[in-house]
Amino acid sequence: MTLSLDLAARIVDAGLAHARQHNFRSMTIAVLDAGGHLIAFKREDRSGILRPEIAQGKAWGVLGMGHGARDLAMRSKEAPAFYAAIAATSQGRVIPVPGGVLVRNEAGDILGSVGVSGDMPDNDEACALAGIGEVGLVADPGHGPQPA
């Protein structure tokens, strides 16, 4: 199974619907395939001008490292020099903050990733989880505290 344009578009739309249901700030959502290619993207009105780069950076970082953003955030605190090097190596495209979620199939294979930016990191992540759950795939936000 691959992460098709149809599935990616449904993930984005469900994530945005979740944001509206909870009155989150204006969101930007990016979905990448397993090769890191952008396949679906939306930026809500009034979402900040850096939000596209942040959303894609969250998605690209988790895909590149093979761990959800909660793992990356925890690891960046434990090894700040390593993550500073990763930021430099990736030209700043790795953003180790919740809101970057791997998309897996039932077998655990990585199909792609979702990056969300616009509100607090836990709310961003909640939108990604809602979108991925809507299409019946497995969301992997990493370990650590999960949002309620």
Results as ranks from 00 to 15, higher is better:
45 D>W: 08
34 A>E: 14
119 D>K: 00
26 S>L: 04
109 D>W: 00
124 D>H: 01
67 H>E: 10
86 I>Q: 06
105 N>Q: 10
126 A>M: 15
13 D>M: 04
138 V>W: 05
93 R>Q: 07
48 G>K: 10
144 G>W: 09
142 G>E: 06
93 R>P: 00
61 G>K: 01
124 D>L: 03
5 L>S: 09
70 R>C: 13
61 G>T: 00
33 D>Q: 01
69 A>I: 02
94 V>A: 09
60 W>P: 03
59 A>D: 12
40 A>L: 06
120 M>T: 14
46 R>L: 13
63 L>F: 10
107 A>S: 15
148 A>H: 04
101 V>G: 07
87 A>W: 05
84 A>P: 00
96 P>T: 08
86 I>A: 01
148 A>D: 07
74 M>W: 11
130 A>K: 02
132 I>W: 11
99 G>E: 12
63 L>M: 08
82 F>W: 09
45 D>K: 13
90 S>I: 02
120 M>A: 13
87 A>P: 04
11 I>L: 05
54 I>C: 10
132 I>S: 12
116 V>F: 02
97 V>A: 07
10 R>V: 05
56 Q>Y: 10
64 G>C: 10
112 G>H: 04
147 P>L: 00
95 I>K: 04
145 P>F: 09
7 L>T: 13
109 D>E: 15
132 I>A: 11
15 G>K: 06
102 L>W: 08
53 E>G: 12
138 V>T: 15
132 I>Q: 08
147 P>K: 01
112 G>C: 09
117 S>V: 10
78 E>G: 14
44 E>M: 10
17 A>S: 14
25 R>F: 11
43 R>C: 09
142 G>A: 02
42 K>N: 03
68 G>I: 05
6 D>Y: 08
128 A>Q: 13
106 E>C: 03
68 G>P: 06
139 A>L: 04
112 G>P: 07
116 V>Y: 04
131 G>E: 11
101 V>E: 02
84 A>S: 08
33 D>F: 00
99 G>I: 01
130 A>Y: 00
144 G>T: 13
86 I>W: 01
93 R>A: 15
